[in-house]
């Protein structure tokens, strides 16, 4: 198990006795079950576990996409549960980036417009945001694709645009739900390399929901969820993959 007191950074995310229950009475399902976590700024964390273990629900709770049934979520020190809907929208806009499994780019916008979307919503002047997007596109191999619509991009290219969209606003936190699930090995490696680079250079905190061993190998902390609660939480060296990650449920 990890030793949280040794973590050097102030927390990007804190959850305290967090529960999310769907349904009531006998049909109630505890998707997230008494989860207390602290994730420091600049961490590169993989949330793993079998399907239905509550990974996506936990990420939704952290991102303020859904309300907890009980408990507390703090992002950047702010209590997400206590916020109004517009405040939460503002928090997502300014402090949280999302990368989705299905890329989820807006099909009517070009790659450039998709990437700069959160900056546009934040009112960043056009010159400034175009400069930022161009620089990042150069860095992540999207140069020349700025005017293409998502339909004219490969899966790997679309996911890179999605990563650019998630990190451009300098968020405290990027939540990525199975970002490599629809990508081949080469595209996955390239994408993870980009995210690792952004994590190291810009100190962006990344939390991945994943089944992908390649993601877990690169992560420096792995949290394993089973039936909605944390079964294992451990720091590790990048590149290694602890045996317990791939063990069947209950074997750890």
């Amino acid at each position: 198990m990890s030793d949280e007191t040794q973590r050097p950074h102030a927390p990007a995310v804190e959850t305290r006795a967090l529960w999310k229950t769907f349904g009531q009475g006998e049909t109630a399902v505890h998707a997230v079950h008494d989860v207390s976590l602290t994730i420091g700024q600049g961490e590169f964390v993989a949330l793993c576990g079998p399907s239905g273990s509550g990974k996506t629900t936990l990420v939704n709770l952290i991102g303020g996409l859904t309300d907890p049934t009980r408990g507390e979520v703090r992002v950047d020190g702010r209590d997400v549960g206590a916020m109004s809907e517009p405040e939460r929208a503002q928090l997502r806009l300014e402090r949280i980036g999302f990368v989705f499994q299905a890329y989820n780019l807006l099909p009517v916008l070009t790659a450039m417009e998709n990437a700069e979307f959160p900056l546009m919503l934040r009112g960043v002047p056009k010159d400034e945001r175009r400069k930022a997007v161009s620089a990042l596109f150069r860095e992540i191999g999207l140069e020349g694709l700025e005017d293409r619509r998502p339909g004219a991009l490969s899966g790997g290219q679309q996911q890179r645009v999605a990563v650019a969209r998630a990190v451009l606003g300098a968020p405290a936190l990027v939540l990525a739900d199975e970002p490599t699930a629809n990508l081949d090995t080469q595209a996955s490696d390239a994408l993870l390399g980009i995210m690792e680079l952004l994590n190291q250079e810009r100190r962006v905190t990344f939390i991945f929901c994943t089944h992908d061993p390649r993601v877990m190998r690169r992560a420096r902390r792995i949290i394993r969820l089973v039936d909605g609660h944390v079964e294992r939480d451990a720091e590790k060296e990048s590149g290694s993959l602890p045996d317990w990650v791939l063990e069947p449920v209950g074997a750890g």
Binding site: A89, L93, F98, R165
Partner: peptide, 15 residues
């Protein structure tokens, strides 16, 4: 539906 969900997740409010 998912597209509107994405817009909301990216920080667009209900209004």
């Amino acid at each position: 539906t998912r597209e509107f969900g994405v817009l909301r997740a990216l920080g667009l409010n209900r209004r």
